[in-house]
Design a protein around this nucleic acid. Structure first.
Lengths: 266, 266
DNA sequence: GCAAAAGTGTTAGAGGTACACCCATGA
DNA sequence: TCATGGGTGTACCTCTAACACTTTTGC
């Protein structure tokens, strides 16, 4: 874009067509050659949470073709004057019922293979959202059924059974989103985004164990988290909700990166 | 996208307009409300190299409005049936004259603020490319002047002088690309992508020093690189091109991640 | 008291930092 | 011979991994 290729963006007439037209979603630029293309722009969401010690993702059961009846990531088209992140945030609020102000949201990647949507050229910008445990029961959604699904079940590779998985390229998007979350837990305090305002160290450890899929030593974990500057701050209160000796409650610290990082093999 | 919002992608007639039309680049969906938008899709490139010990980026001098005469990242519109990465790779080959097959290329992020291009809604997918030192002199390019520019000069914040910087939001894109490169040098063998097929350890160290902007201890660096499994493999040959005692030559190893990672403070 | 979870102490080893020192070449 | 960069040895420190042990609650 923004190159000296002579063309100023504009849509030529060939694209004018009603809805339901099917395949030819492409609008070509001014010249005789196809020097640019107008595409549908969507934002899709990988909304993760940890429930019952398992990493889960919010999915929607599709009510229309294509991929009727299959699981898909929530998402929607970006509106004409809407910023990409604003669009993702709006859809996040719609799907979870949570005021998305305080939720963690970050862009992951953009998917634009020409054939990824059988209806035409649609480019999807994927966002990763992390929500704390008792996430609103997906109430106000205008969509059909939405559900929390175990990520492990979706990502395990059952060779050949590609046809009962996620719609479109959503399995790949989910994989990339989960990989991003796993990586960021190492060097950022992002795990706290899965926790309520106040949490115990072992609840935080449960997040790490669920996302990484590996057990961690409770004693070393406790020491490391409490000694990493800016990771968590004691709130003063304690709780016995996890059983045993009362545990201190903490809230998020102010750090944006962790020094030293958390280590995965432990 | 891909939601049960009732609309199948298609372009309504309002968008049909000739080139040079200027601002109204937006095509609306089927309903009366603006439930989706068709956008121009571009791929922009942050092409980095290290020359004379300095991190540099390939920029183009714009020959047309808007931002006439300003520096901009190379890039162009994605073609109708072209994959995003294929588009970036094609433009990379056009700009550098190098066969882009062997060059490192990765997606960084997507920029889609509604007002980022004054001509209309254009969404840009940014890619990061790393090329080895004597990069082809930007020959076959169809564009106007292209030049290697010091990244440090472009990114230092001179408060207020926003108007002689990069066109569009390209300064931000450049910043994100450089930040990605800096981060990946830590945990991936990516620095070798800046090097020719055979290189010495101190040449590799020069890459790190230029990208991170910090001096590194030659002795510890040497030990660490040669002991990290899969980072580099000795080729058997030696060279004296850097002066002093002959240095062993190495080529890239097979590792995709570095254990342990390189450390920035050193 | 007993189970369970919180939290502290300790030790061996890996890795990082700093720097002294020797090696192999060109000029 | 000297300057230059290549490369090794080593001491000190921090961080990690593993695990023994004490603390404080509920039942």
């Amino acid at each position: 874009m923004e190159r000296d290729d002579g063309g100023v963006p504009g849509l030529a007439a060939s694209a004018a067509r009603g809805p339901e037209a099917g395949t030819d979603f492409v609008a070509r630029g001014p010249g005789a050659g196809a020097d640019f293309v107008a595409v549908g722009l969507a934002a899709d969401l990988v909304i993760l949470t940890v429930r019952d010690g398992r990493l889960q993702v919010l999915l929607i059961r599709r009510g229309i073709e294509p991929y009727l009846g299959r699981w898909a990531l929530p998402g929607g088209f970006v509106r004409p004057d809407e910023d990409l992140e604003a669009s993702a945030r709006r859809e996040l609020a719609e799907e979870t019922g949570l005021s998305s102000e305080r939720l963690h949201l970050e862009q992951v990647a953009t998917y634009g293979a020409p054939d990824r949507d059988p209806r035409g050229r649609v480019v999807s910008v994927a966002y990763l959202a992390l929500v704390p445990d008792p996430p609103a029961p997906v109430a106000g959604s205008d969509a059909s059924s939405a559900e929390w699904v175990d990520v492990a079940d979706l990502l395990q590779d059952r060779a050949g059974t590609a046809d009962d998985g996620l719609a479109f390229d959503h399995r790949r998007i989910l994989g990339d989103g989960v990989e991003r979350a796993r990586a960021k837990l190492e060097y950022s305090p992002l795990a706290t985004a899965f926790c309520p305002a106040e949490f115990t160290i072992s609840e935080l450890r449960g997040i790490y164990e669920a996302v990484w899929g590996t057990p961690l030593d409770p004693r070393n974990f406790h020491r490391k988290v409490t000694k990493t500057p800016g990771f968590v701050e004691p709130s003063g209160a304690t709780t016995t909700r996890d059983g045993g000796r009362p545990a201190q409650l903490f809230h998020r610290g102010t750090a944006h990166t962790l020094h030293p990082p958390m280590t995965r093999a432990g």
